[in-house]
Design a protein around this nucleic acid. Structure first.
Lengths: 116, 116
DNA sequence: TTAATATATGAACAGTTATTCATATATTGA
DNA sequence: TCAATATATGAATAACTGTTCATATATTAA
């Protein structure tokens, strides 16, 4: 059964790929991180939070859109642990969860050659 | 007009965020990179190609699913420059586009503490 | 407690996307 | 040329996702 000109080589790669494929669960977790940061509206929130923590009112001011839309996106970013929240009196103050978030953004930005 | 207890601080951050916000176009480009790698089926293809180049037949073998579905995903990954293709006789051989792809994956995986 | 403010959220709708099915294109060997 | 094989792709459908609107919750000040 010949499948391609490099059968032996590709077959070994395929077997190794299957052996080293992360679990469905891990693949799903990685995917959901990327999904969280793959919408322009959410990316803008992350870019905005590079300047430091902000309450919702100011995030809306920084990124535009309605309060409701921003609030929904904040929930998604929070659920996927990209940002963290703390209450401060009447406000909820958001900030980037950790350095990894910025690191990933910067890696892709430099790759794309777009200025941060 | 008081908006929050840290009006001055947050306002400054919001202004800085607006001033430093990447252009709509750049935000969109970054978003589309993340979108490309935010589906489990596409992520599996990238994980598989860590083992080296493979033709479509073997990619299907490694990640599962139908030939058609894999082919559609390959196109998306190719359009977003995450993988590259070359013809080799009857086959099309795919491989990761560059080191950045793996770097981003590894960064997120270590962040999530899942084994590669 | 009541009014005002800040934030969150459920439901509905519109737009997007992944998969399947059928079929098309391209290469090779006869 | 024709048959076989490998890969790609358009259309259709089903599932998913972002936004809006209306409303709910939580905190503070009076």
């Amino acid at each position: 059964m010949k499948t391609c000109d490099r059968e032996a080589q590709h077959h070994m790669a395929a077997e190794a790929a299957k052996a080293n494929m992360p679990s469905e669960e891990d693949v799903g977790r990685v995917a959901s991180v990327f999904k969280a940061i793959s919408e322009p509206s959410r990316l803008k929130i992350l870019f905005a939070l590079r300047q430091g923590e902000m309450c919702v009112f100011h995030i809306v001011e920084a990124v535009g859109g309605t309060q409701s839309a921003v609030s929904h996106q904040l929930r998604i970013l929070r659920d996927s642990r990209m940002i963290k929240a703390r209450r401060d009196g009447q406000n909820i103050v958001y900030s980037l969860a950790d350095e990894h978030v910025l690191a990933v953004l910067e890696l892709v930005c430099t790759h794309l050659n777009c200025k941060l």
